[in-house]
Each structure stands twice: as structure tokens, then as C-alpha cells.
Design a binder for these strands. Structure first.
Lengths: 199, 199
DNA sequence: CGGTTCGATGTCAGTTACTGTCATCACGAT
DNA sequence: ATCGTGATGACAGTAACTGACATCGAACCG
């Protein structure tokens, strides 16, 4: 890793391509090495061959550099909810959307796990994570409303689905063995179903 | 209001009592008047007859001044979960705890509503709110585990309960008529039950 | 081929949240 | 009266973030 690091910031002039990607990569490397708080934006920018000011042109704040993929995930979830079979119940549509998103994490190798470790070590990052998840829930609730599901059912189904996802994802990143994320999500939702059944 | 304001910071010397309360009140007044971002910590401290440095001795950061009651709420919820009848299901115990907490908001008059309006207007405050709610869920999950409920059931019940509470509370602070918060919580949880029933 | 335009970047100054350190003050115990 | 002791003030410093303006390089146009 350090070899490639040396390579990619030597001679990295003002106009090298993919400034955004360089910033994301530099940030991740420094966060893993020293932690989030012990890393300054100036250091990230320098490692990417840019300046602090440019960092803030790409990312609204220091935390946001870790949440670049959130937009794509949200679009995927909304699309999946919209395309769920018409016969699906609200929670069924949410479930199928969450399962459809699982490959997005699985295909990125170790990155999600390292990223989650960085987030788990810092309260500010956890706050950002939670508000991103809340935004996902709100977007999915909107997609349910498009399907004719009224409030508060739509929001409740979306929030419950996200809660199940959180717990499944936490297990997925923590556990030693490598279970399928989609399977964990299904289990979590089944657990939720069982919870309310015998009440 | 402004009359009492003038009163309470005239002659408010270095050793007047209740510095913490004065800071909380001053902050709330300024946040309502100008908004959270447009208010500096120096202004809050000055209005309370103190200095910026003292503000940060009472509150870890600028946002925390709005979340003083969180500790008491958490203790109440944990106690209520622990004291739920032994026959209660996991979600039943969570439900009774949330309903037991409802009076805590109702008895404070307009304060919860004004506070929620301030939070709704600022993303940073929403982040803090979400992590406080997540902490409540984690604490209640711990109380469930004390009752012998295993993971992931405990966490899932707590998270689902908090989701229901969020939606109930949002309605409570938003709606014109003034319904009972406890009733809205019960409705929200019933809705959740219905969601998973026919799946 | 030279000039122009335009988006991306750099530079710099400024604000504000937040922290560490030490001085100072009022009050209570002796 | 003196002496802690805990609460507060004073002050300097760091780092996140912003606004304004300069500068660079590439594409385009003549």
C-alpha cells in the first residue's frame, strides 16, 4: 500500500484527473492509519496533491468524504421500492429493496468493513451515518407513498426496515465468518415479524 | 419575555446560582429568535452573564445545550423496561416504557414543541437528536437483555420501538390539535404490528 | 498559430467552535 | 483571620469552514 501511495502523489500536479477520488482515497488511508480526529483536512489534501480549499469544494465537510456513495444507494433503494411487484405489502417492498442493495456492499471487498471500523471509532461519524440512514428511510417512505401507501404506514415501514438493515449490517461487518448480507437482512426482518406477532 | 430577559442578566455577577440553567435558557431564547447557526456561543454566554469558556465547561459542545434532559429520559426508560411485568413480550415492555415516558414531555408545556422546531431547522441538531435516540434504543436493548431476551431480538425490539416513537413524536409536535402523546405512541406501535402481520 | 474564455485550482484573510493553561475570585472550614 | 477549594475569567492556540479574488491550463475560435 505505501508503495502505491508514494507513487500516486509524486508528480501529482494541479491538473491530474480524478481529484475527488484521490481525496477519498487519501482520507480513507489516513483515517485507517491515525483515526478520524487525528487527521486534518490539510493532511488529506496534501496527500492527494491538492489544497485544503479544494477539499471543501468537493465535500461539504470533513465527514462527508466517507459518505460519497450514499446518493447512489438511495437511488437504488427508491428504484427497487418502486419496482417491487404490485402485490407486495409495504414491508415486503422495503425488504426486497434492501436485499437488492446488498450486492452493492458485497462487491466492494474489504472496503465496507474498513470504513465501518473507522465510523465505529468516532461519534461524529456515527451521527453522520445515522442521518444518512434516516434520509434513506425518508426516501423509501416517499417511494411507498408513490405506491399508494398512506402515512404513517409508509414511514413506519421504512423506518422499521432501516432498523432491521442496521442490525443486519452491524452483524455483517462484525462477524468473523462471512455470511451473505442479504441473508442477514432477511433474518433480521423475520425476527421483526416474530416480534410483533405474539403480542 | 424580553422583560424577564433583561432582568435576569442585569447584575448577574460571577457567582449567581444555576449557571447551567441560565445557559440553557439563554441558548433556547437565542436559537428561537435567530436560529442555531446564527447564534454564537459567545452570545449565549454573554446573555447568561458568563464567558464562552464557562459554557464549554457545562456542555461538551454548542449542540449539547439543547439535549440536557436526555440522561433523565434514558434512566426513566431503562427503569420502565426493567419494571415491566414479567409476562410482557419484548415489544410490550418497550411499549410500556415509551408510554411511561410520555408525561415527561406533556408536563413541560410548549417547551418540547419550540425545541423541536429549532432542531427541525438545523441538520447538525438533527444528527445529534438521532444519536441520542440511538443511545436510548441501545440502553433499552440492554434492559431487555437483563430480562433474558437474546440478541438480536433485544436490539430489534428497541430500535423498532424508537422508530415508532419518532413518528409518534413528530406527529405530536406538528399537529395543530393536541392529542395525547401516549395515545399516538400506542397507535404507532399498533400500526407497526399491523405492518408485519399480513406479510 | 495566437488569443479568448471558462472551469478547476491556489492563495489569503477571516470567523467560530473548541481546548489547554494559568490566574483569580468568593465561600466555607478551621 | 487564614487557607484551601471549586467555579470562573483571561488568553493563546488549533482546526474546521467560508468568501473573495488571483491564476492556471485546456478547449475553442478565429
Amino acid at each position: 500500500m505505501s508503495a502505491s501511495v508514494i507513487t500516486y502523489h509524486l508528480g501529482m500536479g494541479r491538473w491530474e484527473p480524478n481529484a475527488r477520488g484521490r481525496l477519498e482515497r487519501a482520507a480513507m488511508e489516513l483515517f485507517v492509519a491515525r483515526g478520524f480526529e487525528q487527521t486534518t483536512v490539510a493532511e488529506i489534501a496534501q496527500r492527494a496533491g491538492l489544497t485544503e480549499r479544494t477539499f471543501f469544494r468537493y465535500f461539504a465537510d470533513k465527514r462527508e468524504v466517507l459518505f460519497a456513495g450514499a446518493g447512489a444507494l438511495q437511488e437504488l433503494l427508491v428504484r427497487a421500492v418502486a419496482q417491487a411487484p404490485g402485490s407486495a405489502t409495504p414491508l415486503g417492498a422495503i425488504a426486497s429493496a434492501l436485499e437488492a442493495a446488498a450486492p452493492l456492499f458485497a462487491e466492494r471487498g474489504d472496503y465496507p468493513r474498513r470504513r465501518q471500523a473507522v465510523i465505529a471509532a468516532n461519534a461524529e461519524l456515527q451521527e453522520r451515518e445515522l442521518i444518512k440512514l434516516a434520509a434513506l428511510a425518508a426516501a423509501m417512505a416517499g417511494a411507498l407513498r408513490e405506491r399508494g401507501i398512506p402515512e404513517p404506514t409508509a414511514s413506519l415501514a421504512a423506518e422499521a426496515g432501516i432498523a432491521a438493515f442496521r442490525i443486519a449490517f452491524e452483524r455483517w461487518t462484525t462477524e468473523d465468518c462471512r455470511p451473505e448480507l442479504a441473508k442477514l437482512i432477511r433474518e433480521s426482518l423475520d425476527e421483526l415479524k416474530a416480534l410483533t406477532a405474539g403480542w
